[in-house]
Nucleic acid binder design. Structure first.
Length: 420
RNA sequence: GUGGGUGUAGCUCAACGGUUAGAGCAUCAGGCUGUGGACCUGGGGGCUGAGGGUUCGAAACCCUUCACCCACCCCA
């Protein structure tokens, strides 16, 4: 029979990695709540049109990376490749926009992109997604960076770089597009095939091209950053001065471009070495026109997402033992009868309880107790039952004593022992 | 979609074209008839990714295919 394996790019998260995932998500939650964010759980599957419209039909994500299929009802549906589109949809659909002036939301869950997997890149990956609706002032941009700084610090990540840029608003972008289309048009024959296409559909993306020829050409081109309109310039300067006040080291990268079309003004990306070429583990930016473009009121927005899988590659696990573990070692059929009562007793009292079903020798039970990290082993055999006692072994100190075989007071008696 | 690398025990890896494919770790048992970690002894565990070919003989060489990894592209 052929073995059934997980799909390409889909994987099982287990062992230490689960601990790291949980650490990232727990710490994120803690700070998000501190900053007033509310968790929202949104669907993994949405109408395909939602992503095409918001992310942009000329982006790689939409052109070739979406898990799109037709459901049995004949509708085209897509596994979300990112969270913002769904968050905006939910923000509008639930009527939050009308109920509150500012909405600070977060959501944690899997995203799906049909890409060739490699280090830090999977077809199913987890994100902590954060969105703020209703604040135009650049102080919120800085507040997000501050929160990110605190989260990463708390996780224990030391080496990373925060890069930022402003991609302007539609007005300054239109002007700039005309400027660079003219610039690139002259050098069109030296551009790669992709970039010639981008020149028509999305000229700003040429700056992100890694082919040497295009890099050289775009390297000496005018930059959007230097051609922002006044309001966008003032906004970005405000953002920078707030990050200075907060004393967060942040690098302006005038060439930083996001892969989704909806971004405006502030964009940022947090990268780290040690991730191979997928070095961005957190990214985001402002999207002041997205809500309106989806049929909502003109509410500005800003958000970011943490790539949990990637961040987990950067942190080391610190497994901490929580609570004590009691293990029951039994010998003989009479002793076996204590398994069920003890399981009830300990679990009812929130004590971790282990035993080895189908156990044979005491030795094998002791080995197993050690392997599961038991700190107390209770030993019961015929001798003990006859004497009305049980043996209590302290695994860390290799010492043992006896207690009465009295289940009603056993928990208290054990507590008394550990206090000594 | 393109390029490179790797597929052998549960895991990490050995084995010049030549007996019955090995080792460490893990696992189980024994040493210790009722006591864990360390140590010693032993056991189980493999269609050498799959299919074809070359050869007296293939884990190895050739072809095909599949899978995984890394990189490009793009992105979290």
């Amino acid at each position: 029979m052929e073995k059934i394996k997980s799909l390409r790019g889909f994987r099982d998260i287990y062992g230490d990695e689960v601990i790291r995932f949980r650490l990232i998500e727990d710490i994120s939650r803690r700070y998000l709540e501190l900053f007033g964010y509310k968790e929202i759980i949104i669907p993994v599957l949405e109408n395909t049109g939602l992503f095409v419209r918001t992310i942009g039909d000329a982006t790689d994500i939409v052109e070739k990376e979406m898990f799109t299929f037709t459901d049995t009802g004949g509708d085209s549906v897509t596994l979300r490749p990112e969270a913002t589109a769904g968050m905006v949809r939910a923000y509008l659909e639930t009527g939050m926009f009308a109920k509150e002036r500012i909405s600070k939301l977060f959501s944690i869950g899997p995203m799906f992109r049909h890409e060739r997997p490699q280090k830090g890149r999977y077809r199913e990956f987890r994100q902590v997604d954060v969105e703020v609706f209703g604040i135009e002032a650049p102080i919120i941009d800085a507040e997000l960076i501050w929160m990110i700084y605190l989260i990463l610090k708390s996780i224990g990540l030391a080496e990373y770089t925060i890069e930022t840029n402003s991609v302007g608003c539609p007005e300054c972008r239109e002007g700039f597009k005309r400027l660079i289309v003219g610039y690139f048009e002259d050098k069109k024959q030296d551009l790669c095939e992709d970039c010639r296409r981008r020149l028509q559909k999305n000229p700003l993306r040429i700056f992100d091209c890694k082919s040497p020829g295009c890099k050289e050409i775009s390297g000496s081109s005018p930059l959007l950053f230097d051609n922002l309109c006044d309001p966008c310039r003032v906004h970005f300067d405000g953002f920078l001065s707030h990050t200075e006040e907060l004393n967060i080291p942040i690098t302006v990268n005038k060439r930083l471009v996001r892969g989704l079309d909806y971004y405006t003004r502030t964009v940022f990306e947090v990268t780290s070495g040690g991730l191979g070429s997928q070095n961005a583990f957190l990214a985001g930016g402002r999207y002041d026109n997205l809500v309106q473009s989806m049929g909502g009121p003109p509410v500005p927005g800003i958000g970011f997402a943490i790539g949990v899988d990637r961040l987990s590659l950067l942190i080391s696990t610190s497994v901490k033992k929580d609570g004590s573990t009691v293990f029951l070692a039994y010998l003989g059929d009479r002793a076996k009868g204590f398994i069920v009562p003890m399981m009830r007793l300990f679990t009812e009292n929130n004590v971790k309880f282990f035993y080895l079903p189908d156990a044979k020798s005491l030795k094998s039970q002791m080995r197993y107790a050690d392997s599961v990290g038991a700190d107390t082993v209770l030993i019961i055999g015929d001798d003990e039952i006859d004497k009305g006692i049980l043996i209590v072994r302290d695994m860390a100190h290799s010492s043992q004593t006896t207690l009465p075989l009295d289940l009603t007071n056993l928990i208290d008696n054990l507590k008394g022992l550990s206090k000594k």
